[in-house]
Amino acid sequence: MLTLHCPYCGVHADETELASGGEAHLKRFGPGASDEDFEGYLFMRENPKGVHFERWRHAYGCGKWFLAARCTNTLEVFGTYPAQSTEPPQHVRDAISAKRPGWTWREFS
C-alpha cells in the first residue's frame, strides 16, 4: 500500500486515508488563452513512467492539500511538500537526483 508523509500534521498516511488530486504544478489557462494552451491545461496530462509530481489531500486526517514526488514505476516516494510551493523544493529535487540521476519533468530537473 502506498504511504505518504503529510507535511502538515506529520502523519505517515496510508493511501486509504488520502485522496489523489492528479498532476501538480499545473499552469492554469482561461479566457483569452490560445486553443493549444487551454487544451494542454485541461486535457494533456504528464503520464511518465518514472518520476512524477502530484497533488494529494490528507482527506481522513487534517484535510489539507499537499504535493508529492513519486515514481510511477516503483511507487517509491521521494518526498512531500506544502501545496503552496510553485516548484519542487531543492531537498526533494536532491532526493530524486540521488536515485534517478538526470531526471526531468516538464521544465524541472
Binding site: 500500500m1 502506498l2 489523489s20 513512467k49 502530484e54 510511477t72 514505476n73 511507487l75
Partner: peptide, 13 residues
C-alpha cells in the same frame, strides 16, 4: 487505482 502508476498489480484495498 486513483493515481498514475505502471505497476501491473494495483492496490490491495
Amino acid at each position: 487505482d486513483s493515481y498514475n502508476a505502471y505497476t501491473q498489480r494495483g492496490s490491495f484495498h
